[in-house]
Write a protein that binds this DNA or RNA. Structure first.
Length: 882
DNA sequence: TGCGAGCGGGG
DNA sequence: GTGTACGCTCGCA
């Protein structure tokens, strides 16, 4: 008997017959490959297929079947179920049929998914088989080979232990300053890190130079062969590294090709590792193993200013890279023993960090949970988007109930949909926010609004009444959008049904999570409830996604218009019944100003009371919830606000600053901006002191004018993206790079390097005044305060103050809300810029050439010399006086 | 405001 | 492999 957990599936063609291979792992950590024969590929096609495929040798059998269609209530069709020999011939047959105007169904389901769906097997699910014989094949390299004859699916929560291997390569670019080219530039070092010791070692560095801690090889070819052997012997389930998908793996594969080394380090001895270029990215696959690119996962899961390995490991792991610049690698490689050792260590640490990111941040937990729920293979869950998961999930649910799933839209269908969607799909309801700083605001949210709407109105392609629907029944729900769905009594929609299952499972999981003490189980339960939420929330978006197989604009519109209707009614009811003002609302939430109530007990009570009342009045499963309390709430525009929030936390409250649509960290801002912005927001919200915030802003400007701000806070960072000569315009970071190069040709920055610079005083054009911060600090060169005030500080600060200057004019002295302008003029007499309060304006427009500016340009006039006027969505408003 | 181009990470 | 595969930021009108 063997029990194993399913990790990956593929198939091989043996004598014209496909054999499914299931790669898995036992609880003891043995790798398994189970072969499943006699699974026949098939698809469906409409009438006429018999004629077109007459005499086709691929066809084994054509069976007449009646299938339910996904789109429209009670639509059935007579189809042919066409069984064929070779799954890879399907596209060809599909195209032939389609050329004759015959529609096909499920002819775009990958064979491995056809298998998983029909046998109802889950990725990471457990399988038990009584056969324990080694299958007679040496095409795979695993601990156990099994012929899968009789099997049983097990309901087992436990996960098999997965072996991880991280690696990183170093190479030297022939052309200095360029990224190495795998066609010409050899690999010099490969570092490898193991999650379980391999030959007693936690890590290894392979190299073509001898030295301490290096496994030496006489040539690159030999080293690559050594690398292949290590992988195959260690037999990892997961291969990771930083940017392995788009750099290391394609690079290694190409070097192997150059050196005539077979890139075979998957669990199949016959399949080479694939690294195919698609667009400007690579798609890589290693059969039987899972590639986890820690760079791509970090980028998806964490919001950071930068994603370089140095920055990422510093910020997420609090671990440091060995400090080696790319330009130094060649020198270290050719240098002294010590220098070489530094390089070896540098390489090793990079692999360690890639491994630590995966392990310490639990990067794959979420994807494991998503795979288990959606039935998508882990590798696909990692690489692909939500669409794949939803479609894999729904294929099972629809097939199980006698439906044949719709096909993927072709390019022309996609563009047709895109055109209509832009015109016709209306989004959620966003209330124009009441201007000003509000105190005591309740935030009430609809719990999973769109899923609840879908369930409440039984919204599903299979319940939608279309003109193809047979015998429209009496019991019909007419939605606010005018669409009609049969009620649940007549027939429960599949999507509402699965949503109910998912939402209930989530509640159960959350309950279990509360009781669970074991940290490992807690982690997996947490990931599970998260994945259930993500999947449930994705259905609405999916049906409104133009590439979805079950795209339906009417359904998407029904969901959003129901949402708008509900929010609208909620607002009206709250204002009518309680006399409170709804100051803002967005899609599924309303913000209610509760006079100036500050008693937290009372707040909670009012919030609960309103939610309860509204919930009772609403149809179906819709539920309004008291989410949190904003002690101070400052809306800037739709979708953008800052607030001092208090979230209920047991009997107490969790306090914090919430910012929506406002970034305090942006890569093109220097630290001074982020710091000042955060500070000002904090003063306004927590102290309610707009004047104080203004004073603070003035003091920052004062310090800037007196050259008292540390240079490092003024550094702006940009990446060199192409050769210096290829830049058309003059750009500050390029000018700074030129200066660095001129002073020290050894340190010349190249393509891909990030350049930090500051803007110094002078008469040259701005870009020419960009300077190396170290140089500026050493020489005590004066920075240009005007630049920092106008280009860096002012735009974000003005966004905050402009909404306040109107509503809080009493604080600044009546009619003298130009405080910000004064602040600047006090310290800079030559300044021409006036900050005007933003009322109905969305920017500025030239009176002469009509060029639009979101903000007043520095020079105060348009490029063409024309004068600027306020622009509003309704047109030009009034003249700007400068 | 609304859209298209272009780049990220890696050495 | 029953393949065709981003997603955000920035500059420009």
């Amino acid at each position: 008997m063997v029990e194993f957990q399913l990790l990956d599936v593929d198939y091989v063609n043996v004598n014209g017959k496909p054999i499914i291979r299931i790669f898995g792992k036992t609880e003891d950590g043995e790798s398994v490959c189970a072969f499943y024969e006699n699974f026949v590929p098939y698809f469906y096609a409409e009438d006429g297929a018999d004629r077109v495929l007459e005499g086709e040798p691929q066809v084994i059998e054509m069976e007449r079947v009646t299938k339910k269609m996904v789109m429209g209530y009670n639509v059935t069709k007579q189809l042919y179920k066409i069984k064929i020999k070779d799954p890879s011939k399907t596209p060809e047959l599909r195209e032939r049929l389609s050329a004759s105007g015959i529609k096909t169904y499920e002819a775009d389901i990958l064979f491995k998914y056809r298998f998983l769906t029909d046998l109802d097997m889950q990725c990471l699910g457990w399988i038990r088989t009584n056969v324990d014989n080694g299958a007679a094949t040496n095409t795979v390299s695993v601990d156990k080979k099994i012929e899968l004859k009789d099997m049983e699916k097990l309901d087992k929560e436990k996960d098999a232990p997965l072996k991880i291997m991280a690696f990183d390569i170093e190479c030297i670019a022939m052309e200095a300053g360029n990224v190495p080219d795998s066609k010409t530039d050899p690999i010099i070092l490969i570092s490898v890190v193991f999650s379980e010791p391999y030959k007693g070692q936690k890590s290894m560095v392979l190299g073509t130079r001898t030295g301490r801690g290096v496994n030496p090889y006489t040539s690159e070819k030999e080293m690559l062969e050594g690398f292949v052997n290590i992988i195959n012997e260690y037999d990892p389930d997961i291969i990771t590294g930083y940017n392995v998908n788009n750099f290391d793996i394609p690079y290694v594969v190409e070097r192997m090709r150059q050196n005539k080394v077979k890139p075979v380090f998957g669990r199949c001895n016959e399949k080479q590792v694939m690294a195919r270029k698609i667009g400007n990215r690579y798609k890589v696959s290693i059969s039987g193993r899972i590639i986890v690119d820690s760079f791509e996962l970090v980028k998806k899961d964490f919001s950071l200013k930068r994603y370089g390995l140095d920055y990422v490991s510093q910020n997420l792991l609090n671990e440091k890279k060995v400090d080696v610049k790319h330009s130094e690698i060649e020198r270290l490689w050719k240098g002294s023993t010590e220098e070489f050792e530094k390089l070896v260590n540098y390489s090793r640490v990079d692999s360690v960090l890639a491994m630590n990111l995966v392990q310490k941040l639990n990067l794959i937990d979420k994807y494991v949970a998503l795979s288990k729920i959606s039935g998508t293979l882990l590798q696909d869950t990692l690489n692909m988007g939500e669409t794949t998961r939803i479609e894999n999930f729904l294929l099972r649910e629809f097939n199980r109930r006698g439906y044949v799933y719709s096909g993927r839209p072709n390019q022309s269908e996609v563009s047709r949909r895109e055109k209509n969607r832009r015109k016709e799909l209306k989004g959620g309801f966003v209330l124009e926010p009441e201007k000003g700083l509000h105190s005591s605001v309740l935030v009430l949210d609809f719990k999973s609004m769109y899923p609840s709407i879908i369930r409440s109105f039984n919204i599903c392609p299979t319940t939608l009444l279309t003109n193809e629907s047979q015998e429209p029944p009496e019991d019909v729900i007419t939605t606010v959008a005018g669409t009609k769905f049969v009620s649940k009594n007549v027939k429960e929609g599949i999507i509402p049904h699965v949503l109910e299952k998912l939402m209930k499972k989530r509640q159960e999981t959350k309950r279990a999570l509360k009781k669970e003490k074991d940290p490992a189980k807690k982690k997996s339960l947490h990931a599970r409830q998260w994945a259930l939420k993500i999947l449930a929330n994705a259905f609405y978006g999916h049906m409104g996604y133009v590439r979805a197989k079950i795209y339906n604009l009417d359904i998407a519109n029904t969901i959003t218009s129901s949402g708008r209707d509900i929010i609208h009614k909620t607002k009206t009811e709250i204002e009518k019944k309680y006399g409170y003002k709804v100051v803002y609302g967005d899609t599924d939430s309303v913000m209610v100003k509760v006079d100036n109530e500050t008693d937290m007990q009372k707040i909670r009570q009012i919030g609960t009371e309103i939610s309860k009342h509204i919930t009772e009045k609403l149809p179906g499963y819709l539920e309004l919830e008291f989410e949190k309390f904003f002690k101070q709430f400052l809306p800037l525009t739709k979708k953008r606000y800052v607030a001092w929030k208090f979230e209920p936390d047991g009997d107490g409250w969790q306090e914090g600053i919430e910012m929506k649509g406002i970034e305090t960290v942006r890569r093109d801002w220097c630290d001074l901006v982020s710091e000042t912005l955060s500070e000002i927001i904090e003063i306004i919200l927590k102290k309610g002191d707009v004047k104080g915030a203004l004073e603070y802003f003035k003091s920052v400007i004062k310090n800037l004018m007196r050259n008292k701000i540390p240079t490092e806070k003024l550094v702006i960072t940009k990446t060199i993206t192409k050769a210096p000569g290829k830049y058309e315009g003059i750009q500050p970071h390029i000018e700074a790079a030129k200066k660095i190069t001129a002073r020290n040709p050894n340190e010349a920055p190249g393509i891909g390097d990030r350049i930090g610079y500051v803007i110094i005083k002078g008469t040259d054009m701005l870009s020419k005044r960009a300077e190396d911060p170290t140089f500026v600090a050493e020489r005590g060169i004066e920075i240009d305060p005007k630049y920092y005030i106008e280009n860096q500080l002012l735009p974000p600060m003005e966004r905050i103050f402009s909404v306040l200057s109107i509503s809080k004019s009493e604080l600044l002295g009546n009619g003298k809300q130009m405080g910000l302008m004064e602040a600047i003029n006090n310290y800079n007499e030559t300044n021409h810029i006036k900050v005007l309060p933003r009322t109905e304006t969305n920017g500025f427009i030239c009176t002469k050439c009509s060029k639009f500016y979101p903000r007043i340009p520095l020079v105060g006039t348009c490029e063409c010399g024309g004068e600027l006027a306020f622009s509003s969505p309704k047109g030009m408003v009034k003249q700007v006086t400068l």
